[in-house]
């Protein structure tokens, strides 16, 4: 049977086209210069191969114009390529505001994907076509790298840091997902599939109709965790419990025991779960046990989603809050 020999990757995302255009331009440029140099070498080699008669050649046969020419021309060309590449990069690294949120956690040797609406998958990611998808990445152990060749996107998942990438699938189909940063013995087996589907099929899949169990949203899973882990014993809905009530806490300012105040954004919520003694709310004892090592990355995200859901509709969503906070930070008020 004729072996399968693809020579060019599929173009399955909005960014694949522009990236490939730059690729073809560079191939043309490289072909031109390589053939120019190789052609000159071959031509000179044949034309001036060693013969009895010695050709006249001026002593210091150097031409300044030539030198300037082949310094300035390559520089100008490279600036063009730089600018083109830079514009592409800025688009690649700026997710559109309305993109679908997905969390991908790299853990030695599998990808754990989690949609906001709760569907969780391992080494598989269902995405709708025609809508930008922003994948927020992190890793639980070593550096991995989320790479989908058909979408021309790649981003490292670094432990201790949220990085993100975005793409907008254009063609339904199953595309390779690779781990591109060496991460141990089964690095080569840490692969998976990104399944692009028509939006209707995606919604059907998302609501889990064909796989029976209706998915549980992150906030819902967070609520269950909140009770299972015993948080509810201290954090009552009113302030009567030993811990502060968490209603309407997400996104608002929290008075701390040392007098300063901080806005309860997701990083503060995460820190209070994992290192409660770090900054204790005013008027409460630092008695909360640390949940470090008791909850996984994804569970912390669910808890945050649940606390977030305790806000009544009126107050500002978390996104704007931290926006305000960063302006405050830029005025140098934040430490």
């Amino acid at each position: 049977m004729i072996p399968e020999l693809p020579l060019f990757p599929e173009q399955a995302s909005t960014m694949a086209g522009p990236v490939d255009q730059l690729y073809f331009f560079l191939i043309a440029l490289s072909a031109f210069f390589s053939l120019l140099v190789a052609g000159l070498i071959i031509a000179f080699s044949i034309r001036y191969r060693r013969r009895r008669v010695r050709l006249e050649r001026p002593e210091d046969f150097g031409m300044l114009q030539l030198e300037i020419g082949w310094t300035v021309l390559p520089f100008v060309l490279s600036m063009v390529i730089f600018y083109w590449g830079a514009m592409l990069f800025i688009d690649l690294r700026r997710p559109p505001a309305d993109s679908l949120e997905v969390f991908a956690v790299g853990k030695r040797w599998m990808w754990k994907m989690q949609h906001l609406e709760g569907r969780r998958e391992i080494n598989e990611l269902h995405v709708p076509i025609g809508q930008p998808v922003k994948v927020t990445l992190t890793s639980e152990d070593v550096i991995h790298s989320f790479f989908v060749p058909a979408f021309r996107v790649k981003q490292d998942a670094v432990p201790g840091r949220y990085t993100d990438l975005w793409f907008e699938a254009t063609k339904p189909g199953r595309y390779h997902l690779f781990c591109a940063e060496f991460c141990g013995s089964q690095h080569a087996r840490m692969i998976g599939q990104v399944i692009a589907m028509e939006p209707a099929d995606f919604q059907a899949w998302l609501s889990g109709t064909e796989r029976g169990a209706a998915p549980v949203s992150m906030a819902e899973a967070g609520k269950r965790l909140f009770t299972d882990l015993g948080c509810v014993t201290c954090h009552q809905t009113d302030d009567s419990g030993r811990g502060p009530s968490l209603v309407n806490v997400a996104g608002s300012a929290v008075e701390l025991s040392d007098g300063s105040s901080v806005v309860a954004d997701s990083a503060y919520l995460r820190e209070s779960i994992l290192r409660p003694q770090q900054r204790v709310t005013a008027g409460y004892q630092p008695i909360m046990p640390t949940y470090q090592g008791l909850v996984g990355e994804d569970q912390v995200l669910e808890l945050i989603a649940y606390i977030e859901s305790l806000r009544d509709r009126g107050s500002t969503p978390l996104g704007e809050v931290t926006q305000r906070k960063t302006e405050a930070a830029t005025e140098g008020t934040a430490g």
Binding site: P18, V19, L22, Y23, L26, L29, S30, F33, S34, V37, A38, I41, S45, S78, I81, F82, W84, G85, A86, M87, L88, F89, L92, S145, F147, P149, R152, V153, K154, Q155, A180, E181
Partner: peptide
């Protein structure tokens, strides 16, 4: 002569990797 030819190809493909938009796809 082999050096000049191959080094030219090597250097030019370096431009592919130095341009940001392409490197996202071809890195690693």
């Amino acid at each position: 002569l082999g050096f000049i030819g191959l080094f030219t190809i090597g250097g030019l493909t370096g431009l592919f990797l130095a341009s940001l938009g392409l490197d996202v796809h071809v890195h690693d």
